[in-house]
Write a protein that binds this DNA or RNA. Sequence first.
RNA 1: GGGCCGGUAGCUCAGUCCGGCAGAGCGUCUGACUCUUAAUCAGACGGUCGAGGGUUCAAAUCCCUUCCGGCCCGCCA
Length: 623
Amino acid sequence: MSESEPDEPSGTASTNETESADETDAPADTESADDTRSDEVEGDSHYAFWADEVADAIEARDPEEPIVVKGGISPSGVPHLGNVNEIMRGYFVAEVLRERGWAVRQVFTTDDRDPLRKLPRKLADLDGNIVDLGDVNAGALGRNLGHAYTDIPDPFGCCDSYGDHFSTLIAESAELLDVPIDVVSTTELYESGRMDDVVEHVLRNREQAREVLSEYQDKVDEDYVPFNPFCSNCGKVTETVTGVNVDERTVEYRCTDIEAGNRTIEGCDHEGTAIFREGKLPWRFEWPAQWQVLGVDFEPFGKDHAEGSWPSGVDIAETVLDIEPPEPMVYEWFTLDGEPFSSSEGNVVLAHDVLELLDPEVVRFFFAKDPNRARDFSIERLDQLVDEFDRVERLYYGEESGTEQEERRAERVYPFLVSLTDVPPEALAKSELFEAVADGEAEHAVTFDHNDTHDRERRREFVDEAFRQRVRLPYTFAAVLGMFDDDSARMATAKKEGHVADDDPEWAVEDAFGRVALASEWADRTDNEYNYTVARTEMPDVSVDGDTATALDDLADFVAEGADGEAIQGEIYESARRHDLDVGGFFAVGYQLFFGETEGPQLGYFLDDLDREFVVGRLRREA
RNA sequence: GGGCCGGUAGCUCAGUCCGGCAGAGCGUCUGACUCUUAAUCAGACGGUCGAGGGUUCAAAUCCCUUCCGGCCCGCCA
């Protein structure tokens, strides 16, 4: 539910019940110093995972099944990583509740009935490629200011509407992270008539509605009507309702100018009549109305709502609609390399982008952290995030020990980070559990009912066992491997460094090397120290003294005879020593010859990976 | 001006709700090893827990004040 520039997440999980009045027999604070129930400290009163606390609060409401977890955003432009909060934070809570045996429905509203108020600077095609506004038909888009997103043609021409286009991208984000959500179009809610009753209720009680809202918004005056019809003449949303006929379920309006930010969107002066399905409630009412229509029990939202639309929404829900508002959770916003996320600029805003750099489980891990803290999604230091995840994973599988706190958290959180779609198809196909379903193709065609407890357990168990056999290449190491062209060279280096063992399952090894592409992309995008380039066309300027020259010639002869990586690596040491050279210095000369740098990858293995002729020639300083 | 959230090692953060020796990873430094971009192993260094006051036998943690940062308190979502 955010739309402007800095849409981010951040969290605040405050939920004080403020139940001041518990009078009667409150056996509460019996200071009973008795021992009898010697408080066995370290109970589980203190959760390792925030989602458990939220789940407690939801259960305390005595909800009906299925428990409805909601999230939502306005499909105003490129959905960025901050928006993914609306999906992931709810997901963890949903999964905890499912683990506790509850049926949960996670819905996601795309608030596509909202009017386009300003043109975004960047758009994205369905593959997630960022495109400048100027590269699509900006003029056509400009003529649609004030129109509902679902009434605006898709600038890319691939979806039914502008709103549909970006809703599709959001839905894809959830899918990429294997989060099962029901995407609900707000436009569809209105047009299908599902909102009619709430709209009628609000308009029937518009006096009261106005009164309540006026406590939160100064602009609410006597003429305020909590409904915005779309003009039947020009299609623009209009804020001037001149008459209400609740029984007929219609309103009369005049199409006047509306203010959007610092500009005015002109109305056409048309006067008409609209039915409820031809308009929308203002956001402050629409949100609570969604809670009612969808039966929402829990909803996370960004901190921008915490002091704005949330308090008024609660009041409207309780006073006007007479419903219980959902359990709230505020999340802090993320920044991208220190800057606010913005739908209109930058790259790496989409889940699609992030997944070119990170394993999906690492992305989920990022969202499993305390929502209450603002975090920076630092591309530069993605290796830290990955390392942190890898450690949590090792802690979970008991392959490493940590502090008690770390181990508790790892044990509790890790299972929610890995998903069936993360398991390579080969492993899936080999599983006895999945034999029946996987016989056709080794596809991830296995679908589970997330709310079926038995299915859920089988899935969790399987994933747990599969990942126990996983192979992980440290992220930066994977970046190093990215410089090798040849798979066998990569494998040799990985084995030598002990990241791959001979008895590791083939599928796990293959899967592990998937990180090479991710880390290489990272090295490439950040152009960091792992982004080495072999200086092929021109020999770097290196001064080589007599002994060094001889040693290099020796080495060249050795390579020319056809030695493998390990042998070359050994020969580098040998030839240096033979000529009384400092080994480190000799390596440095090697790196300079091939990269123009003083450091580089394990040279022997790397040279083996390059074509022999080039290597020999360069060692002889010929070209 | 009012409200919400955050401020803990050079970096990224746990720990704060429930007071009990200030923690982890990374980085740095030392040493080891066929020293070479990720290393690995052993060890060390590293903290006015934003600041001040209060409560307490004991405070990063609870209370009050205060500083800094983000957001909200117009509209829109």
